[in-house]
Nucleic acid binder design. Structure first.
Lengths: 348, 348
DNA sequence: CTGAAAGCGCTTACAG
DNA sequence: CTGAAAGCGCTTACAG
């Protein structure tokens, strides 16, 4: 069928000729711009189908001064995380990009990013119309993107009041802590790390709010945080020692994320504690591993794909609305929050 | 510093003028083609630096008929696997792509891929110079890529005798089984699934070879395979029942990959078996989770980043060597195998 | 070894 | 509402 012969590329010119029309008309129907009579449109569409015409991306870019590429910037360590969190956000963005006819160029950056030296090529070459930045990244990078003038949106992170998609961490946390309380727990601890990540500090805040509201003044002695560590299994395991080694042992722990929760559970099991009987544990994120852990993890679900999708859509809207990039009004409309949802399984 | 002013784009023309040279000369020094005198080159380079010239990707593409993009095709389920296996391969390719000045466009495809309907846009639009296909994918896709005439290489998969980068699964497996034998094990079982993936069937073969060589004729009663399942934790867990429920219980199990091994361990622990005392377990892949499991997983390491890097490099070479895509000679030179390495930890 | 010129395949004012 | 033409920023023969 599809002979791998050196078939000549079909151009817009061929289509125009075939449809007895002009290149501009073809261009208009392809791009859905301007008015073309129904008859002409049909003829053109027919010619396109018959000839198998596919527009050339580079030619379009060159002529229109748009790349139709979106950059997706992510810390390398976030990309290779065993729990596919950002990967799923990326996937959501990719999915929506297909709908919107964008290509997404992924650029991973080192954790110790340095301006200039590590500038992603897509930024240097300005080979994107807009950028999505996922998760916490070096502020050098942020400033660099900001200076570039290329529109961008953040996902699961915030910077000044630039457009962003964030999780409703506070309410998700409140819900989790309340659930624990309903189960009769009073001594509820918080376990966290990398507290400078806004998602994590918001989760702490939610915890504090819920505790205060329930009349527990002293949350401080019950919060265990290793600020300098990233929130991984290992960190959770290590913090487990501190939590369970103190004199005032909690009966429940709300963890800043699933990895920490899983690490804590691992430690607790090693100490022969029964979960949830001896210690109830709730995580946050709803990561793959939580479904397969023993016991299965009770957690707060984050809609990762949806976040990516929203980010792409928001960015696409920005690109359409502000070609001159000047309207700084209504910025707050561009800071979206997606709800999180408590998922009750076995660990609490 | 970097004013976000509407600075006019610096073009090759500006550089030529500034360097008192011509556009073609500038082009040549940028691309390192043809001969340019040292003096001219220096002048041009100086002008480029001073003006901050960055070539326009689309203009280049249009003029040269190369996109400078590489497509990376991957099954969606492989991308979101909790164990970042293919993700790391991708990262390796991405890394090498930077060196070679390619952008890599990631396209994830559904597991139930259908020709035409699901054709990745990068293929349809021919917006890539070459393609990397990672892991086992639908044969429809393979045929479609083949028909497109776009050069491609496979990673961790094979198709006809197209260029590929594969793991030395057989020798890795032999090494693992031999290690188990050295430890005194005789009843060594094999645990696997999705046996149609060449990597997995090769691992089985390695197992069989090693067993035979050691005088164990009957490997059949010791191989446990669920062909229709993918090699996940869950499958490993489920197969655990069969392995440990039979009358002839193995003292060691060589698993087709880490996920299966981890699932098996989970089941065995639940059955109060001690690992490795009661049951020794070896995996394959050396995935993140194995380092944090209890006990830590003994496994065969696969150099994932390196595989991606090799794939990109191989593809880049193909693209340079055969612009007309005709030489089908020496294909076997293009089927690379990377060694695997036994990593001894705690589970065996 | 270097420069002038055509051409890559589109989009976009601009006439009509 | 539709067509002719310029121009996007490069690369690549082709003269010199």
């Amino acid at each position: 069928m599809n002979q791998p012969t050196k078939k000549k590329k079909v151009t817009i010119k061929d289509v125009a000729k075939h449809a007895k029309s002009s290149m501009s008309t073809v261009s208009m129907v392809v791009n859905g711009k301007g008015y073309v009579s129904d008859i002409k449109r049909k003829e053109v569409l027919g010619a396109i189908r018959q000839l198998g015409y596919v527009p050339s991306a580079p030619a379009r870019s060159l002529a229109s001064n748009r790349t139709n590429n979106i950059g997706f910037i992510l810390r390398e360590s976030h990309f290779t995380l065993s729990e596919p969190f950002y990967t799923r956000i990326f996937l959501g963005a990719e999915f929506e990009a297909k709908n919107q006819n964008y290509y997404v160029l992924l650029a991973t950056v080192a954790d110790d990013y340095e301006r200039e030296a590590d500038t992603p090529r897509l930024l240097k070459e300005r080979n994107v119309d807009g950028i999505i930045i996922a998760g916490k990244v070096n502020s050098e990078l942020l400033m660099e993107v900001e200076d570039s003038g290329i529109p961008f949106v953040l996902v699961d992170y915030q910077y000044k009041s630039y457009p962003s998609i964030t999780i409703d961490n506070r309410n998700g946390s409140i819900e989790a802590v309340r659930y624990l309380m309903e189960k009769g727990h009073k001594d509820i601890a918080f376990l966290g790390s990398d507290i400078r990540h806004p998602s994590i500090s918001d989760r702490l805040e939610g915890y504090q709010l819920a505790m205060l509201k329930a009349g527990h003044q002293d949350t401080k002695s019950m919060t265990f945080i290793d600020e300098d560590k990233s929130p991984t299994l290992q960190t959770g395991f290590d913090l487990g020692m501190r939590i369970l080694g103190g004199k005032r042992k909690p009966t429940a722990v709300f963890c800043a994320n699933d990895a920490l929760a899983l690490g804590l559970i691992k430690y607790a099991k090693q100490k022969k504690l029964k979960i949830p009987e001896d210690l109830a544990v709730v995580g946050f994120d709803d990561v793959e591993g939580g479904k397969f852990s023993t016991p299965q993890l009770t957690t707060v679900r984050v809609f990762k794909e949806q976040m990516g999708e929203l980010a792409l859509r928001l960015l696409a809207e920005l690109l359409d609305d502000i070609p001159t990039l000047n309207s700084k009004f209504e910025r707050s409309n561009h800071m979206l929050t997606v709800p999180a949802e408590l998922i009750i399984r076995e660990s609490a």
